[in-house]
Design a protein around this nucleic acid. Structure first.
Lengths: 341, 341
DNA sequence: CGACTCACTGAAAGCGCTTTCATGCACGTG
DNA sequence: CACGTGCATGAAAGCGCTTTCAGTGAGTCG
């Protein structure tokens, strides 16, 4: 029952078209070197039989899978959605298929996924951020599988990355917040452990505060996983302090949106009673009320460029070239000024 | 340069362990039938060499890929994210890997993706909704690849599906809207063409209105792609009418959120000036102000159940069993009552 | 007009694994 | 002691494709 119809193979096509399997293979992969007439007969046979090449066999014989793997920390929220979508589309343009898996921000799972992707023959791999066990990098290098990092960029780091400088970006945002007169800060950061993006964003804030003569140790900082509810709870906790902050800077938009929504539930007006900032510039930030002040990351462009670069690496065998992308600080309605009287 | 290190194969492991390749294969796939001592030697050799099985070869020899494919209409917004995430996790439990691709709501692309997934040896395939070219179903059946539909359920339809009744759910929501006294409706629907979910949601509204003695032809309906901005624009257009609706029902949360945000920009109070409803119950609906009245779909459960069922189909070779999931209508703050004086 | 080139095609090896079949060996049994 | 039994292993075929190597015939050139 399960195999009533035999699945047609390349040999079946060859027989049907009255030519050799070799020529059928060429017709499919390298049509230029086959005569027009033969090409047509192959085409006809393929259609008649409903032939689809067997990926495993093809991959085994050609040692090319036309597959690119990507491991992102999460699919649950939209942080990576836009970028990965663009990455996928651009890969498709190059004739590659994308395999995505998510690690739930767990380094062990990530390492396992890397092995899984390689075992499935990924010709190249996209990873998020820099920080991971050196063993993972070793494994990739030993296998000679090109890899590229995204969503982060640190000048001087030798690993090929396409992204933006998380520290500098947050530094810049913090700059603007200071310019509005804020001096009483609080921070809701993502989990810093093993996450260079989160760590650098936090560092961007503390660095800027130091430069402004504010001791970061005096700033209340809550570290929590990226999740709307966590953002909300952290916000509430921060506002319990007797000396309330005038601004709460969040490690990403998801946390910030949680903060905004809890603020409303608490009857606080944003930004009159308290200002809130985010990071990422996902759609959420745009539609929340008030519109979120945030750092806009060019997700789609990052995805496209990463695809182009990774394909280039795979096909040329050359080392990857890093690219830094420009972010844009957008001071939207969720932040107000503070009189510095 | 690209191949300085030769990738270790099963034969290398066999040599290193001093046993035959056959036994190594057995140790890896069927440890029960191998002696404990041999197992250990294999384990040691695998670790020493850093061996990872070659997926293509394995798939070719065993004719099982341990891969499940899923084709969703879009990754851009969160409609499918939660469900697919759960689907993936549950598949992982069963030892399967998920391959996701998106069709951008284009039936041609979807058909192409089906072929691509099959060619990659997907042992089973998850598709969204019922409507697609019969040729796609034929192809799947001819190939004997089990498939399952999700995000929809129509009683009596023979195709195996795990989801909810889009028409009935929207009918139910509309019911509640009527109960609040609304009589002047407007609708922002998703593109109905080729999309049974969108079509049935719309039908749920018109059916209910008919039953209430309201001629659906008198109700302004705008059909547009699921996108926040489209929702916003459609809303504005609908509110331009001289006889404004008291409620705008939207085909999904994304459209509804767009509508809410435009309402605010237009200086309209939701729900005092106009009520707005959505569909899906994604996170967005919860955090928008005012909280969106919508139909909550149990995405995670749908994903998990779909995974269990599809794996069962693949492993048993039996036909798929449909399951209908319960939705929940939540009348949140974006809807108010209308005095029926 | 013989030697070459060129465009096209075929034969066959081999990619890394699983699985069938055969074999060896240590038992327990009549 | 001859035999069947069951466990653990090995040998070898073969999965469906690509690619190298070797033609073949037609056209071109000195």
């Amino acid at each position: 029952m399960r195999s009533r119809h035999r699945v047609p193979t390349l040999v079946d096509v060859a027989k049907d078209a009255g030519i050799s399997p070799a020529t059928v293979s060429r017709s499919l992969n390298n049509p230029d070197i086959v005569s027009k007439e033969t090409l047509e007969r192959v085409q006809t046979a393929v259609n008649r039989l409903g032939y689809t090449p067997h990926f495993g066999a093809r991959y085994m014989a050609a040692k090319r899978s036309w597959t690119i793997g990507a491991i992102i920390p999460t699919m649950e929220n939209a942080i990576f959605a836009k970028g990965i979508q663009a990455f996928q589309e651009q890969l498709h343009e190059h004739g590659y298929t994308l395999l995505v898996s998510s690690s739930s921000y767990d380094p062990e799972i990530e390492a396992e996924q890397v092995r899984a992707l390689i075992s499935r023959g990924a010709d190249g791999i996209l990873l998020i951020g820099y920080w991971r066990d050196e063993a993972v990098y070793d494994f990739l290098r030993r296998r000679n599988v090109p890899f590229l990092l995204a969503w982060a960029f640190t000048a001087g780091n030798a690993l090929p990355a396409i992204g933006f400088d998380n520290r500098a970006s947050m530094y810049q945002l913090c700059d603007q917040v200071l310019a509005l007169g804020h001096r009483k800060f609080a921070v809701i950061s993502g989990k810093v452990d093993g996450n260079d993006r989160a760590a650098n964003r936090l560092k961007g804030i503390t660095d800027r505060l130091k430069d402004a003569g504010i001791d970061p140790k005096t700033v209340p900082i809550i570290e929590t996983a990226y999740d709307i509810d966590n953002g909300a709870n952290a916000f509430e906790e921060l506002m319990q302090a007797e000396d309330r902050p005038t601004v709460v800077m969040c490690g990403n938009d998801v946390l910030a949106v949680g903060a905004i929504s809890r603020a409303q539930e608490m009857g606080l007006d944003v930004p009159r009673d308290v200002s809130i900032t985010g990071f990422d510039g996902i759609e959420l930030a745009r539609i929340v009320t008030p519109k979120l002040a945030t750092v806009r990351v060019p997700h789609a462009e990052m995805g496209r460029r990463a695809a182009d670069e990774l394909v280039r690496m795979v096909e040329s065998g050359e080392a990857g070239q890093s690219q830094e992308l420009r972010i844009e600080v957008s001071m939207d309605l969720s932040i107000g000024s503070v009189s510095t009287t």
